[in-house]
Amino acid sequence: MERFYNTFKSNFFNVTSFSSVEMMDELTMKYINWYNYVRPHSYNDYLTPMEARYR
């Protein structure tokens, strides 16, 4: 979980500006979806977290 928060803050939250709370919520959900379903992780032999979970 700590690794996720570090990645989240450095790659998304600290470099994105939000015009509203609703926009922040929407973009955060999109980032989480991308992180879990699209982004390969070296720790998982370059599988996404969901691919590694159901492997």
Rank of each mutant, 00 (worst) to 15 (best):
M1N: 13
M1C: 15
M1D: 15
M1R: 10
E2Y: 09
E2G: 10
R3S: 09
R3A: 09
F4P: 09
F4W: 13
F4E: 05
Y5M: 14
Y5D: 10
Y5T: 08
Y5E: 15
N6G: 14
T7C: 06
T7S: 03
K9D: 13
K9P: 01
S10L: 15
S10Y: 03
S10V: 07
N11Y: 09
F12C: 06
F13Y: 15
F13K: 12
F13Q: 11
F13A: 04
N14P: 00
N14R: 13
V15P: 01
V15F: 03
V15T: 04
T16E: 14
T16R: 14
T16K: 07
S17W: 09
S17P: 02
F18Y: 10
F18N: 05
S19Y: 14
S20P: 08
S20V: 08
S20R: 05
S20Y: 10
S20Q: 06
V21N: 08
E22Q: 08
E22C: 09
E22Y: 05
E22P: 02
E22K: 09
E22R: 06
M23D: 08
M23T: 11
M23W: 06
M23G: 07
M23K: 15
M23H: 12
M24G: 01
M24N: 00
D25P: 00
D25Y: 01
D25W: 01
D25V: 04
D25A: 05
D25M: 06
D25K: 11
E26H: 06
E26T: 07
E26C: 03
E26M: 07
T28D: 09
M29T: 03
M29F: 10
M29H: 07
M29S: 10
I32A: 04
I32L: 02
I32R: 01
I32S: 02
I32V: 11
N33R: 08
N33V: 01
N33W: 00
W34S: 09
N36R: 03
N36S: 05
N36Y: 07
N36M: 06
Y37N: 12
Y37A: 06
Y37W: 12
V38D: 10
V38S: 06
V38I: 15
V38Y: 00
V38A: 09
V38Q: 04
R39A: 02
R39Y: 09
R39L: 02
P40A: 04
P40N: 03
P40H: 08
P40K: 03
P40I: 13
H41V: 04
S42C: 00
S42L: 05
S42I: 06
Y43Q: 05
Y43R: 15
N44W: 11
N44H: 14
N44P: 05
N44L: 12
D45M: 13
Y46V: 05
L47M: 15
L47T: 06
T48S: 02
T48F: 02
P49G: 05
P49D: 12
P49H: 13
M50L: 09
M50Y: 15
M50F: 11
M50T: 11
E51D: 11
E51F: 02
A52I: 01
A52S: 07
R53G: 00
R53P: 03
R53F: 09
Y54A: 06
